[in-house]
Amino acid sequence: MSRFKSQDVEESVACNLIPMIDIMFLLLLFFMLSADMTQRVTEDMKLPLADKAIEDPKEKEGYETSTVNLICENDVWFVKIAGHGYPDWGHLRATLDELARLSPDPANKAGENFSSRAIMLRADSDAPYKEVQRVIQLCSTVGLYKIEVVAIKPTPDKV
């Protein structure tokens, strides 16, 4: 008799996995939906803080934008565009020139080669000014005159 009783007890302690699976599915769904699986145009870096920076408007501003990241790896400052690094300034110039030609400014007069494309310049807060200046000069040379300097709006704990 006692043997039967002990068997009953063992069976009743079976773990029900179904609620745990439900919760895990919900967690999985949440993480999958919040994950950014798009092509990364922005690099991880420490951006400068500025409370007066204008938030990116949700509606289109009437011009195309391209993101240019100025980052440092192994003490070398270089530009990354859409995940592609440009340690060589000649190649960078060619790419920027290509970008500029994709959207010529409709207000261009004869002989002008300005572009309506804006460059979102994301430069690391520690970047020496000369590196930023060089990127801006390069943009100006190929006709990209709309430069947007990206900064982080401070949250209360960062003020």
Partner: peptide
Amino acid sequence: CVFFMCSMKFKELEGKFQSWLPK
């Protein structure tokens, strides 16, 4: 779940200064 939790990053609020270079 572990993969997605590790790859999750909270987005910081970014803003910009428009700076049109002189033509």
